[in-house]
Design a protein around this nucleic acid. Structure first.
Lengths: 158, 158
DNA sequence: GTTCCTGCAAAATTTTTGCATCAGT
DNA sequence: ACTGATGCAAAAATTTTGCAGGAAC
């Protein structure tokens, strides 16, 4: 779980890294960083823009959101997550190696964050044996979330 | 590793399941099944169509390829794999639970199939503890393949 | 003879790029 | 002032859908 303290630290770290890279502090990218800092899990580009437009202040264009996310991903500040749908999702990349994976409910589409040391350990042991230099890994679980598994299948509009 | 015998079995199983579902044996879908049966790992829709167009016989349209893949995925005969790029990839889903995961080289884009019992075991143990009914899982490794890790980074055109 | 399948073209969706303008350093 | 950042619109790329004709059962 990510604490409020860690989130604030990420935001500071991100602003710092952006400055160090010789980039400027424009409104759109800062707004994206500030929004992402509040999140524990991933958001789509559309969700990010919708949230920024709904909030008071600037109304950035989609292109700026994508450009900001692209820059942040290049700086390893943001992790691009592909959960199998049509849209990519983005979440803060915490530098301490604290990371999680995702479970997607096939009924309601909910995304749940997952953490498990056993799996991480097995994954690292496997990586050591592999003739492939592993830098990162993503795990996506598919199935039914607790709510949807409980009730007789209610399928949300897609 | 998937043997020639297993591939042939998959092709037969697929044709059977298609028939059982009350579907007909048109040329495009059969060609897709036959091509996939020869593969160990995943192909994109474009790669599938290119291969079919290059081969003697029919020249199916992209729409037919997508429709065939969609039908096969619904019947759980094909597994849709999203490796993080812009395109989705598809591979035969072997019914015996024999499955593998993927490592993507960030330099040359090569996709390598990965199998590891330790990881599978850890994943199942985790799934048992989770308040989420896990039906399937995907793992994607990112890094450098043996060839690219060996030489000083040569970056292929993207 | 139905009903499904196919191929083409058009549409829909997500993401990227061009360009003129604005803003940060 | 110089150069990066932004917003709009257009473009690109992938996947889906509509429709008319053809093929399987």
């Amino acid at each position: 779980m990510t604490t409020a303290r860690e989130r604030a630290a990420w935001a500071r770290h991100a602003e710092q890294a952006i400055g160090d890279a010789g980039l400027r502090a424009g409104g759109a990218r800062r707004a994206v960083v500030e929004l992402l800092a509040k999140q524990d899990c991933c958001l789509s580009a559309q969700e990010i823009r919708d949230a920024l437009v709904a909030a008071p202040g600037a109304t950035p264009g989609m292109a700026s959101v994508y450009r900001a996310l692209d820059t942040l991903t290049d700086l390893h500040l943001v992790h691009k997550v592909d959960l199998g749908g049509a849209v990519a999702r983005y979440e803060p990349a915490h530098p301490d190696g604290d990371h999680h994976h995702h479970a997607v409910c096939r009924d309601c589409g909910a995304v749940v964050a997952i953490e498990d040391d056993g799996v991480e350990r097995a994954l690292h042991e496997m990586a050591d044996r592999l003739a492939f230099q592993v830098d990162a890994h993503d795990i996506t679980l598919h199935g039914r979330c607790a709510a949807c598994a409980g009730q007789t299948k209610t399928r949300r509009a897609r």
